[in-house]
Nucleic acid binder design. Structure first.
Lengths: 418, 418
DNA sequence: GATTTTGTTGTGCAATGCAAAATAATATAT
DNA sequence: ATATATTATTTTGCATTGCACAACAAAATC
């Protein structure tokens, strides 16, 4: 139903549209903002004036002004997001490692740090304390005024419950139910979030317009694990607890191969690096998965062997393709997506995987449902997790700047009247 | 991004909120509308005045005024949707049968009709022509001025492509790709839609507030076929072509039992009436499914046999439960829903199905993902398909009345100026 | 008939966005 | 060097919206 509307809402919405345009297009003159948003020049002037006053936007000195110096007429004034309007910290937790990044309001990374840490056997409280200490240390090391940091956003492999702010299960930890958000918010007194890493990659794809803003796109990340980001109508679908799109742990065969998560028959147990390796080596299906990522060299060698004709290796990749294909077929029957994007290190072996993957989709789902479906491959850099976390955080900040801006003004007025 | 906003949008939104409140609450006085929508009395007066003028709303004579006659003060004036503001026709196409209903703007059904017709072997064009002829005949029989009919909405079992307006595949037809919307729109020159029957039931659940308006709810309909309606944030999720939530034809076992759709291993081939019957009778998995619904008496008998201890019958229901359970487990891994609702005639045998269904969910999905999940059973009447089609149609009309109302006014003004 | 209660309408204000006019700043023509 | 053309931004004036508050209306009760 989306409730009633008033003129405040209109301003808020239009402020946000302007901010988003600026974030996506980069520094732009006012005319450009008007063209892109459809707002009149008068309105753009009014809104940008407010945003400048609120400290979210600045007029940029015409550094690159030489570019359009050939044109006649009054020169444009570039407007841009004010880099030091706010800062945020993105944290990536993976097996044996924590990474930090400090980003300014434009999304630019100002500082990074990473440290090795034996996460696997850590007790929840100990890890939380350690995380807080390391975050404090990172903040100190950046020389940024701590009060300017607006939020801390954490991404983690595995099942992240964003409602409770807990890591429900992760390959990085033996323990379950590790509380992250509450300890951080108590320690730093700013909004903090926890999210699944694949969903953060998907946020990055949206920010970079690599994912259509309408319809449904499923992005599959293949590698040490199998992840998915589901983008519905331009937003990452989170599910009830933020744990949606656990594609890797979607059951492939009841009672099948043993998965890292302790369950039998997950897709990941067939299609992730360790699953492929296990079946290539003809180890029994219930062989315990290694607790650390498969060495990249080992996978390179396996791919090479398959391409050189090694029957077992070929069969392992085919088996992986069939597992992913049936998983996708089931997803297609449920969600009828417009697009599937394959990404991640695992796509290196796509030549070995794709035929059986496509065959499985054809076998597993009615032709009518895949009539308009596009399947694409996408090069995805390693840093997409940190980058996507920052993108998502910045979008959240935009919403807060747009929402708080006018609200603050009326709040102040009310206080003056009292 | 949702684009820019202006004051027109505010009015449109608030008009819609008022209409929706009226539709959901039934006739209400203005104060009540104000209380419910949060709009000020002044605004309510202004909006209702417009809506009355536009012919969407009327002041009702205080028929039930005796109810609150005990109160002091000025009596309320009930406002209600104007029944004859617009009409629509809902059509339900199933195996061997077409049903029609004429509904007024309040959603009340004014006339119904149904006819048996041997759909299965009909050629697409012949069926379309017949459908048009029967619809015309139905309209004539209602004595409603044809110009007052605002739309025709068709629901069908099977894969309905709402983008192309074609029945991609349906158990009611041997043929595929039966064009429905274009022929109807050409014949009647009003907006027509085609949708899947399970999605229409879901629309009905929303209209009756049986489904939470936030979060994700999956409604499963068990019976002759297996259907699903996916409600995400208060709206039925349609997918790219309107064919989302084809749960019945989601693959259960690669290369498994033969399904009505011609494919092997669909969930429906194990869990629908005919699937259960086939396995209870120990017929081979590739036995062709019957082209007509299983007689209800046969299913009653099978249930009775199972409850009386018949091993084969018990095993068949357990097998069905396991199939649905694994299907749901996969759905849960992908969508992390808040709620699952089980409905339809098949829930009669829930006592036989549920244990294996729940066991399969536990086996098939990580505990963390089903921590907050609620599974409920819902009595769903036969008529939910027609009812839901009407509900969905009315919501569409509301949007058009709210949207066209002000637009028309400005259009008229512009014409006067020219 | 006066009083009380409650619901509806009118008035004045503040905010919004837009169209059109005014102003600003530059390139180019004369 | 000056005028003109061109493009960007700001200002002005107006229409729309919603809201708070006051005025009005209608019936029940005293």
């Amino acid at each position: 139903m989306r409730g009633k509307a008033d003129s405040d809402l209109v301003r808020r919405q239009n402020r946000r549209v302007v901010l988003e345009t600026l974030r996506f297009h980069g520094p732009s003159p006012r005319v450009e903002l008007g063209r892109f948003t459809g707002l009149s020049p008068a309105t753009i002037t009014s809104i940008t004036m407010q945003l400048i006053q609120d400290g979210a936007v600045i007029e940029l000195d015409d550094v690159a002004g030489t570019v359009d110096s050939a044109k006649r007429g009054r020169p444009t004034v570039l407007l841009g997001l004010k880099p030091d309007a706010a800062f945020m910290i993105a944290v990536k937790i993976s097996i044996g490692m924590i990474e930090f990044a400090l980003a300014d309001f434009t999304g630019e990374i100002r500082e990074r740090a990473q440290l090795s840490i034996a996460t696997f056997d850590m007790q929840p409280e100990i890890f939380a304390r350690r995380l807080i200490a390391e975050t404090k240390h990172f903040i100190t090391s950046t020389n940024i005024e701590p009060a300017l940091i607006a939020q801390i956003n954490v991404a983690v492999q595995g099942v992240a419950d964003n409602r409770l702010g807990k890591i429900a299960w992760s390959p990085a930890f033996k323990a379950r139910g590790i509380s992250i958000v509450s300890p951080l918010e108590e320690a730093f007194n700013i909004p903090c979030t926890l999210a699944n890493d694949a969903n953060m990659i998907a946020e990055g794809l949206i920010a970079q317009k690599m994912v259509k803003l309408s319809g449904t796109t499923a992005a599959v990340f293949m590698g040490y694990g199998i992840g998915m980001g589901l983008v519905i109508d331009g937003a990452v679908y989170q599910g009830s607890t933020g744990a949606a799109a656990e594609f890797g742990h979607m059951n492939y065969v009841p009672g099948g191969a043993l998965c890292r998560c302790g369950r039998a028959g997950c897709l990941e147990a067939y299609a992730s690096d360790y699953g492929i390796l296990r079946s290539a080596e003809k180890l029994p299906d219930d062989t315990s998965p290694p607790s650390h990522p498969v060495n990249a060299q080992v996978m390179f060698a396996l791919e090479a062997a398959a391409r050189a004709g090694d029957k077992d290796a070929i069969a392992a990749f085919q088996k992986a393709g069939r597992a992913i294909g049936f998983g996708l077929a089931r997803m297609i029957a449920l969600l009828n997506p417009d697009r599937i994007v394959l990404a991640g290190a695992g796509t290196r072996a796509l030549d070995l995987i794709e035929p059986s993957l496509r065959a499985a989709i054809e076998e597993g789902v009615v032709a009518e449902l895949r009539a308009n479906l596009k399947i694409e491959t996408l090069p995805v850099g390693k840093d997409m997790i940190i980058g996507g976390t920052i993108d998502a955080g910045m979008r959240r900040l935009d919403s807060e700047v747009y929402a708080i801006g006018p609200a603050l003004q009326t709040e102040v007025k009310k206080e003056l009247l009292v």
